[in-house]
Structure formats: C-alpha cells, structure tokens
Write a protein that binds this DNA or RNA. Structure first.
Lengths: 131, 131, 131, 131
DNA sequence: GTGGTCTAGACCACT
DNA sequence: GTGGTCTAGACCACT
C-alpha cells in the first residue's frame, strides 16, 4: 500500500481507504485476516500506532472485527460495507472537484475533459477489475 | 466563500482554492484588488492570520501581488495562472479518486457512473459558465 | 531615486539613504533646497507621508533643516554629515555580509571573490565619482 | 544563533540565513535533523511560530524536509543548496552597498577601503574556514 | 516529543 | 484602512 506522507489526507485515513479498497476488491475475503498491525506498519513505513488507529476506524465501520490471538478478521458482510464505503468516498471526492470547477466557471464539458484526461494519466489498471 | 472548518483540507488551502476559482471565473480581474485580509477573515469567519497565509501562497504562485496600504492586486497574467492552477487541482483530485476506485476493483464504467452521479447531486451551476 | 517597494529595508529608509547619498555626491550643496515632499513623493511613486517621515529623520541627523516657505535646506556641514553617514551605512552592510559568509564557513578569499563579482554585476558608475 | 530583534531584517529571515549558513558550513549534514521548532525557539528566545515560518521557507527552498514526529531533515543536496543560497545572499548584500556607495559618489578604491576596514572590524573567524 | 494548522491580539510601515 | 511580522497559547496527526 502506497502511503503519501505529505498528503493533506492523514496517513491513518489513507490506510483506512487502502484496506477498504482491498476488501472491496476481494484481496481479503470475509473470514480472512488482514495484515497484522506490525506487518502493515513495516510494509507502509509507518508507526504501528498509526496503523492501530486505522484498524480501530475500520472496526467501528463494521468491516473487520478483532479476535484475540487471531488478528483482525473481515466480517461476513465486510465486502458489501467496503464496496459501499469506497463508492461513497469516490462520490464525495468527485463532488468536491466538480464544485471547485464550477466555481471557477468551468463548463460541464470542460470538467468532463479534465476527468477523461485524468484517466489517461492514471497508471494501468491491469484488467483486474471486478465490478 | 464557504469554509468547511472540519475538512481534512486546511482552511488556508480552501481559501487559496476559492480565490483562485474566483479569479479564474473573472470575479476579480487583473488590476482588481481581492478582499483585504481583514475583510476576507470576517466574511469567512476565520482568523486574519489564516487568510494571510492563503494570500502568501497566492502571491508565491504569481496570482496576486501585495503592497502595504493598497491591498492585494490580481496580477496581469493572474487569470491564466488561476485557470491553470484550478485545472491542475481538479486533475489531481480526479486522479486520486480514480486510483482509489481502481484499487477497489471498480471498472472504468463503474467509476464513470459514480462520476456522472456526482454531477446529478451537484447544486445547479445555473448556466453561467463560459468555457 | 529608485524605490524598491518590496525590499526588507523600509521605503522611508531608502529615501533617507538616497538623499544622503545625493548630498554626499554634491547633487545638493549646503544652502540648496532638496526636492519638496510633494515633488519627491511624485518622483518616487510614494505617499507624501512616507517622504515626510524620511525628511524628519534627515533633519534629526542634522543634514537638513526646515525653513518656513523655503522647504528643506542642506545644512552648512551637510556634506560632511552625509559622507560620514553613508560610510557608516556601507560599513554596517559589509560587516553583516562578511559575518554571514564566515558563519557559512567561507574563507576570506572566497568572500573577497563574491565581493569583486558584485562589482562586475553593478551598473556602470559612469565616472562621476568624487572621493 | 544570534537574533537581533530590532533589525530591519525579519527574525524569521535571520533564522533562515542562520540555518542555511550552518548547513553550508557542515554543522548539519544531509540526513541530520536540524533543531526542532520548539528547541530552536527556546535557543533563539523567539516564538515557535516564527521558527516554523523560517523552516517552511527552508523547506520550500529544498534545503530540508519535514516529517511529523521526526523533525526537519537536511536533504541530500542540502549543502549545495545552502552554499548557493548563502553566496546569493552575500552577493545581493554587497551589490546593495556598492550601489549606495556609487550614488554617494564614492570611487571604487574608496568603497574597497571601507570593505577592507569591515574585515578588520569583524570578529575573528578563528581560522576554521574550509573553502 | 515533533511538525502543521489555527485562533487571538498586537505593533509597524504605508496609503 | 491595508499588508507584514510577531507573540502567546492551543489542538491534531505522527513517532
């Protein structure tokens, strides 16, 4: 998981987003354990406390649950929660960009063009898409 | 200008984005003064220091220039800088959303659908757009 | 007189320095009137209050004196005061640069080289020098 | 680091100059942390916000980079940036003094003499220089 | 502890 | 009034 340390979005939030996306993508399925706090911390070059905070958030969201000695397990309905949560996050981000563009006087076609250009600039999705 | 105090995007950055959009939209034209630090602070219910910080950023970007006693003036090429800066900001936001969607396994059509839905949810742009 | 509005040295100080240099150079001789506050303000694209403040400083230094209806007159010993004042200002500026260079670990030859290079970069002095 | 609170050069700029000189001199090497905002504030008898402002400037210059919880780290190419920045600052200061001297009608030998005299007045550099 | 952001209030140079 | 700088004190994310 790529963490951008100087982003305006807090690191723990980036981890929340990343795990949620991975569950949505089926990388971790219901009943699977997600990486341990320590493993995730090493992988993301981040302090374990920060990962811990992200996992607490995901637990509050009902996506995972902690079982002593077993680590954090994806809940039965975890994928549905992840898909819905990711869609909501995307929607909010799009809405924010659209609003900023409108305030600047950009027409819908102009904003659509920037959106399409952002796809062209995106790294390959490598055909793994599921939805 | 609407400020969302609890957003992850810092208040001063919201002001930067807002002024840039206003200059891009032609609300303030080259040679015009933008609202004074104090006036903007009152209007946005924000501390003058926070506005000052936003204006410093805009000055570094070459969009405005400040003179003591006179206010902050939009530069000759301010509109071009604002248009380019706004487009860049939009592009970055879109790219971030697209990447998150791809990580979650969303197909391009699925993400496009969320994008279009975000337009439906957006407040009316009232047809004033020029570009 | 060239004023740099965004310099760290205050505008009124730049005017003080400029008038003092002009008196030192003999542009204004003892008994001459220096430009009126209004004329100087127009010439320097500066507010008259700012020029007024500079002239008050020069009067406190004994370089000029105000005579009702006559404007500001260069004192009898004005040139000596101007020469001494300018030399002091130069000395202080040099000392400041030398100290900064030494703190950065620059040797005397290295600093001397930068000093000579600054001469090469200087606009022509046009051979009017008197001292 | 000596701060002169009543100088025309802003305190935050004095801190910028001081840190840059220290990096140029090799006091802080690439990978080292410079003093924390709070530590520097205490050492310089200055408000933490003022130090913060100086560090932001140095970060924009590419000399250091900040990470929450870790401190401000000198960049790999920090020393080169510091050397170049210090030389530029010296050059600007010299140029300013030379110009003022020329306006006052001082000849090059006269200004050179003041420059050399400023060395005589400077506190000993104790022969530690390396360049 | 460490950087990043923010509020509250002040003084200065300049118009 | 207007921008620029500074102090004092606070909270947050991160280590």
């Amino acid at each position: 998981m790529r963490i951008e340390p100087n982003s305006v979005v807090p690191i723990f939030q980036q981890i929340v987003d990343g795990i949620r996306a991975a569950v949505a993508a089926g990388v971790y399925k219901p009943g699977d354990a997600i990486p341990s706090v320590r493993a995730q911390a090493v992988a993301s070059l981040v302090n374990p406390n920060t990962v811990q905070r992200a996992y607490e958030q995901l637990e509050r969201d009902g996506l995972i649950t902690g079982r002593k000695g077993l680590g954090m397990i994806v809940q039965t309905n975890g994928r549905a929660i992840a898909l819905s949560g990711t869609a909501t996050a995307l929607s909010a981000t799009f809405a924010q960009a659209i609003q900023l563009g409108q305030e600047a006087g950009f027409s819908r076609p102009a904003i659509d063009k920037i959106y399409r250009q952002s796809w062209a600039d995106a790294p390959e999705s490598s055909g793994r898409s599921k939805t």
